[in-house]
Design a binder for these strands. Structure first.
Lengths: 249, 249
DNA sequence: CAGTGGTCTAGACCACAGT
DNA sequence: CTGTGGTCTAGACCACTGT
């Protein structure tokens, strides 16, 4: 008798089929719906659905209720010996369109962890700036930045919506923030972050915390805590050590 | 009329229930089977199954066909300003038991990419060493190391199974390998790596490539390419920049 | 062998987005 | 309104693991 040519289950066969199609498609392209797939492959809708879910697991597609399934492509987010590149630059480098949207900005007393990180006296004030980040108008991340209020008085009125924070700090306050520290890890986003991104399920994210200091005196300017969706960004870490033991930049 | 107290679907409610139980459990503990869950919650097996799959997606559990569903706990794999710590140390630090198993070792002509990376003449020879890594006897990773043959003549007979490569290089050959470079990214493992790990579905992994050099002269000793399961290890990157622009170690 | 997870079907209802 | 993905049920068979 003839051995089965393939022992891969139907849903995986469909997924692999689609994966080949995706490889030849442009990001954003629409894939057939669950119903269509079920019909063309002569399978139950649940089987077609399993195939699309497998592709979502592989992060080859993003699925949106009421809209459909779309080809996705992750953007490399490099962290290395030098300072991490600006987020906008990272996005633009691959030909996508970054957008930053200010959720709100307010002046308030610094929280405990922020006073430590920013080397402030207890009770000192900060601007708390929360921003959503979009790639091609798709929600891609959320972050909250705390800025030393004394260094940037009136920031809440001077920061234009969508403007670069760093450019504003430089142009309006003469500050030149340089990266002071960075920590990133792959984490499931908290529920409240998922909500802010317009998602129901908690997405996997690059959770990061960074601090920027003055260029010259080295005093802390701001700390940021944020989440970037891992189905939009791929974390890449790269390092080189010199013979002497230092890091090549 | 009464508003629905909860709009979270049953499978998520079950998953969240179990997540709370998991938080109080020890890694390796066995969870109820799909059938049991379906019964205790008065739901269909597929609903119970969806709950367990959600937990698998969150990497709170690992599921093995024919055995059951077990509480998982990821181990932080730190990459930072200093050299990445040894894999075994990383595992032992959290009280788990690391094991390295040599799949095979052979002497052969170096491949093109290896000659570049190791600064060898074309046609020079290397030892190719492939090893499986286990955590508590669970397959957790696979890696292939290419070692300059001239520096470690007879390595294939002198390297004991399960022994530390670095210790052997030091004790038997007087070499003191130091990290030269490291690159890591979150990638879906290739099918053949999945097979070597005894998995059917391609797992998400930390894919890395590293190079180690001599301590003094700085000549390359070995390059390694490997994959570590992200449901076992969590990639964490940490950096600090000094005022002067260097990296704190 | 019994117990476990893996897959499939047929049919149903719901939530959400765009027209 | 239609089309999309999200969820649920009832029932079935298979593949793998350990006893």
């Amino acid at each position: 008798m003839l051995a089965a040519v393939t022992d891969t289950p139907p849903y995986l066969a469909i997924a692999d089929d689609l994966a080949r199609i995706i490889a030849r498609s442009r990001p954003g392209a629409k894939l057939p719906s669950e119903y269509e797939l079920a019909q063309t492959y002569g399978r139950n809708r649940q089987t077609a659905r399993a195939a699309l879910q497998e592709l979502e697991r592989r992060q080859l597609v993003r699925r949106v209720q009421g809209q459909g399934t779309f080809v996705a492509k992750r953007i490399e987010f490099r962290v290395g010996g030098g300072a991490p590149p600006s987020w906008s630059e990272t996005v633009r480098r691959v030909g996508a369109e970054p957008r930053v949207e200010t959720e709100r900005i307010r002046r308030t007393e610094a929280a405990r962890w922020a006073t430590d990180e920013l080397q402030l006296e207890p009770g000192a004030e900060v601007y708390v700036l929360s921003r959503r980040r979009y790639v091609n108008d798709e929600p891609a991340g959320w972050a909250e930045t705390q800025i030393v209020a004394d260094l940037a008085d009136g920031l809440d009125t001077r920061l234009q919506d969508g403007a670069s924070l760093y450019r504003t700090l430089e142009d309006e306050y003469g500050l030149q923030p340089m990266r002071g520290s960075y920590r990133g890890a792959i984490e499931l986003a908290p529920t409240w972050v998922a909500r802010r991104l317009g998602l129901v399920a908690r997405p996997w994210t690059i959770e990061f915390r960074s601090r920027a200091d003055c260029e010259l005196r080295g005093c802390p300017i701001e700390v940021t805590r944020g989440w970037l969706r891992t189905d939009v960004f791929q974390l890449v870490v790269e390092m080189n050590w010199n013979r002497g033991g230092g890091i090549e930049r």
